[in-house]
Amino acid sequence: MKQLKTERDGPVLLVRFDNPPKGYMDGGTLDDLEALTLEIDRDDSIRAAVYTGADPATFIYHFDTNVLSDMADGMRAKGMQFSADKLLPERNIDTVFGRIAASPKPHIAAINGNCMGGGLEFALACDLRFAKAGDYRMGQIEIALGILPGAGGVVRTAKMIGAAKAMELCLLGEAFGPADAHRLGLVNDVIEGDVVAHAMDVAQRIAAHAPLPVQHIKRIARAANEPGDRDALALERTLFLDLLVQDEAVNNLGAYNRGDLKLTDRKG
C-alpha cells in the first residue's frame, strides 16, 4: 500500500494516512483502504484498527478537490446528468466506508489534525472518534464549493446528531474546531495528550474481550443509530454528482484549487 503505513501492537492494527504534501484523500487512498479493510476482516488475529494521520497536523485534510474538478470536467464533456429518479450504485468509497461500518471489529479514528469533507466522512464511518485538542479545522464544508457531502456525510451526521443539527452544519458549510465537534456529538472525546496513545489504549481494552460479544454489540448499536436506509445513501451520492457537474461547483472548485476561495469558520 502506497498511502497507508501500518504497524501491529498485538491484536490492534495502527494505520497512518500518508499522502503528502496536503494529506488529501484520493483514488489511491481508497484503493489502499479497500485492500486493507478486506484484510482486517479476514485476519482473525486483528481485533481492532486505529486510524490517524502521518502528518502531525493532518488526519485527512479532505478529498482531493483537484480530482473532483477533473471528474466534473470529464462528466460535463460527456453530457452526463444525474437525477433522484435514477439512483446510482455504490462506488469504491461507499464500499470501503460501508465495510468499516459492517465490520465485526471496531474501527477507531484518532483525529490528530485537519479533518474536513471526505476526511470527516471517513471518521464518521468509524465506530469511535477521538480528537486531539488543538487549533485545527473539522467540518462538512462542501456547500461552500457548490456541492454536498457525497460519501455519507449528510446521512451519517443526521443519524449521529439529528437532522436539524446536521442540516445546520451542512447548509452553513463552516469549519470548526475539535471542542465544537465534541459539543456537537461528532467525536467521543477531545484528548489533551497523545490522541493516538489514547485510541490505542481503548482499542487494546476492547480487544481484551471475547470477539463475538464485541461483534454483536457493534452490530446492535449500528442497527440502532447508523444509516440503514441504503436509499438515503444512494440519493446522497447521486445528488452529489448532480451538483458536481453544475457551473457553480466547477467555478468554486477551480477557485478553491487556485487559492481564491477561502473557507469560513463556524460561529456560535
Rank of each mutant, 00 (worst) to 15 (best):
residue 126 C to L: 12
residue 252 N to A: 10
residue 201 D to R: 13
residue 94 D to I: 05
residue 190 V to W: 03
residue 246 Q to T: 05
residue 114 N to S: 10
residue 134 G to F: 12
residue 250 V to M: 04
residue 85 D to M: 13
residue 90 E to H: 10
residue 180 D to M: 01
residue 192 E to D: 15
residue 81 Q to P: 13
residue 95 T to Y: 08
residue 125 A to I: 11
residue 87 L to S: 01
residue 229 D to V: 02
residue 185 G to V: 04
residue 139 G to E: 00
residue 193 G to H: 02
residue 192 E to A: 13
residue 102 A to H: 09
residue 195 V to N: 06
residue 129 R to K: 15
residue 39 E to R: 12
residue 92 N to K: 14
residue 137 R to F: 14
residue 66 N to C: 03
residue 166 A to I: 09
residue 184 L to M: 13
residue 112 N to T: 15
residue 130 F to H: 11
residue 46 I to K: 07
residue 202 V to Y: 03
residue 205 R to T: 10
residue 231 D to Q: 11
residue 68 L to G: 09
residue 116 M to Q: 10
residue 99 R to V: 09
residue 229 D to I: 04
residue 209 H to E: 14
residue 250 V to W: 05
residue 231 D to R: 10
residue 238 T to L: 03
residue 180 D to C: 00
residue 172 L to K: 04
residue 40 I to G: 04
residue 44 D to W: 06
residue 120 L to I: 09
residue 104 P to D: 13
residue 79 G to A: 02
residue 25 M to L: 14
residue 265 D to L: 15
residue 262 K to L: 12
residue 259 G to S: 03
residue 257 N to G: 07
residue 10 G to D: 10
residue 154 V to A: 04
residue 37 T to W: 11
residue 44 D to N: 13
residue 220 I to G: 06
residue 195 V to H: 04
residue 11 P to N: 14
residue 85 D to L: 11
residue 22 K to E: 12
residue 182 H to A: 03
residue 204 Q to H: 15
residue 221 A to G: 06
residue 242 D to E: 15
residue 61 Y to R: 08
residue 245 V to G: 06
residue 199 A to P: 00
residue 111 I to Q: 03
residue 228 G to E: 07
residue 191 I to S: 01
residue 199 A to W: 00
residue 249 A to F: 04
residue 202 V to I: 06
residue 73 D to E: 09
residue 64 D to Y: 04
residue 109 A to I: 11
residue 217 I to A: 13
residue 85 D to W: 11
residue 157 T to L: 07
residue 88 L to G: 07
residue 165 K to L: 02
residue 177 G to Y: 11
residue 17 F to V: 15
residue 162 G to H: 00
residue 74 G to W: 01
residue 43 D to C: 11
residue 257 N to V: 15
residue 216 H to G: 01
residue 207 A to Q: 08
residue 100 I to V: 14
residue 191 I to T: 06
residue 193 G to D: 05
residue 266 R to S: 02
residue 76 R to K: 06
residue 137 R to K: 12
residue 155 V to Y: 05
residue 2 K to Y: 12
residue 43 D to M: 09
